[in-house]
Simulated assay, not measured.
Amino acid sequence: MRPVKVKRKHHHRSSTSSAASTTCNFDEWREEAINGGSLKHVDLHNGSNGWASPPGDVFSVRGPNYFTKKGKVPAGEWLLNPAGVDWLRSNAKLDHVLARPDNRVMNALRSSKNYEKSKTFVIGINLQVPGRDHYSAVFYFATKLNESINSNPLLYQFINGTDAFRSSRFKIVNKIVNGPWIVKTAVGNRSACLLGKALNCSYHRGPNYLEIGVDIGSSAIATAILRLALGCVTAVTIDMGFLVESQTDPELPERLFGAVRICQMEMGSATLVDGATPTSKVLPMSSGGESEVDEDQ
């Protein structure tokens, strides 16, 4: 597969060689993570059995005057950069996958040059699909702490806050790009949902990551819709945007922290992993907001 060109955000930076080196390293490990995995990175418009990164403007979010005029606006650029997708299959529900010793995305980050100095932070969203075989679709997004997290109070609070706060704010916006009418009707062609309230969500806060586990099997309605969608999954292309919901005027407008397009996925493309990985091999972590992002980083 031809290597992808990673999306680079343009920020005013110092011209020192150290800053340039850190930026280069950030893109290098992400390129490895994006091009790895069994579910391949594909063309946004013509790809199949893979994933791509839709522009934020295909989603509508709460605008600056939402609480007075209910106005919505295109979401604009995501706060975090895409850092890969994993489509996994196991004999048990996969939880806290970013701490697994075989997690290829976190291993790519740790193997990058100047890893300790890079101050890179990853948000992983683990959509857990129930069934005789358990599946997980894991979406990874990454950034430098001082660029998108410490400069965004709402996202900072989401990462460092309590699980109750996270569940009250974790939101998804969907758009069915292609698919049978029955799927569009069931899912909603342009729908938004507070996942933290509709489904059971777990949160794992590590030293440089936050993983959000979304248990689709915790809702009978969500499970029924999912089974319908999986029945024709190779004909469905869906955009998913993830954000922290704004609930007060100072928090507006809403911003996506990441987005992904899943293009006509095939169930058989999933990577088989052991659901019984010994916990003794799991990397150190903390949960429930006990670890905080260092504001001086």
Rank of each mutant, 00 (worst) to 15 (best):
A92Y: 04
G231T: 07
G196K: 00
V6Q: 08
T68E: 10
S287Q: 12
I262Y: 14
V122N: 07
D27N: 03
T16Y: 11
R13D: 14
A142R: 09
S15F: 12
F257G: 08
A222T: 03
V260H: 07
R205G: 04
N91M: 02
K184I: 06
N49V: 04
Q157K: 13
E254M: 01
S218T: 14
R89P: 01
S48V: 10
P101F: 00
F141T: 02
C201W: 05
I159K: 03
D57L: 03
G84P: 01
I221V: 11
S53I: 12
H11R: 15
T271F: 06
H10D: 15
P284A: 00
N103D: 13
L272A: 13
P55F: 04
S21N: 14
A164V: 10
N178Q: 15
S191H: 11
A198R: 08
T277E: 13
H204M: 00
S291L: 14
P74M: 06
E290V: 14
T16P: 03
G217S: 14
V233I: 15
N174S: 14
E254P: 00
E266A: 09
A20F: 15
P3I: 04
L230C: 13
M106Y: 06
E245T: 13
D249N: 08
V73F: 09
S280R: 11
G196T: 01
H41F: 10
C24G: 11
D239N: 15
T68I: 06
A142Y: 05
L94E: 02
A20L: 15
D239H: 14
N114K: 14
F242H: 09
S90V: 07
E292V: 07
A220V: 11
S38P: 04
S151Q: 00
V273E: 06
